[in-house]
Amino acid sequence: MDHSGISVLFEGTNFTRLLGGLWVTVKIAGVALILGLILGIVLGVLRTFKNRLLRLILRLYLEFFRIVPTVVLLFLFYYILPKQLNFNLPADQIATLVFALWVGAEMSDIVRGALISVPKHQRESGLAIGLNRYQLYRYVLIPQAITLEIPATINLATRVIKTTSLLMLISVMDVINIGQQIIEANNHTHPTGVFWVYGLIFLFYFLIDYPLSWWAKRLEKRRLERTNG
């Protein structure tokens, strides 16, 4: 019975199950990011408008999703709201929805920040050559804001991917949840399996997140090179 913990990973279908869990994680984070980014850009643009009521509502939306911890949001959407409102979605859809709304909120602030930090003379020049509001945003403000917001957006993306580890609380079979199943199922034969399973999960998250943060750093460097010559 010379069991090294690492063999836990390759017994039966364990490795493919972990990969399956990782796919669930990536799918939820990916779809949530795409939906959230679209939502966030629209809301971010709306937040630069002058209408006070609109701005107040969007501000409340942002603060709600920023202040309330993600765990609480997941519980609220999975257990509490369905009971009151009589709708019932599967756990992974709820997870995607919550993460999309959260990304949308955070993203709206990033977009707003980027839009108002485009130099003022750009906006004024645009207006001076007779652009309407749509054209102003489409051709002048948004293209210049995008370079400003990319690093913060990628940072947000890595945060979202890491936060998916909370999903086991609402019964989503993500990579952490499957990892725990494997650890518990093999605890009596492979007591050191826990180290290897979490080690592999760490590697998975690293392989997804590190390229993103490397990309963010490179984009930021290029932007500085471009602006400072």
């Binding site: 039966g12 725990q180 518990e184 093999n186």
Partner: peptide, 13 residues
Amino acid sequence: GDLPPYGWVNQDG
């Protein structure tokens, strides 16, 4: 899903 021997997942998933 993580409580052998009551409810858990074996190596075949």
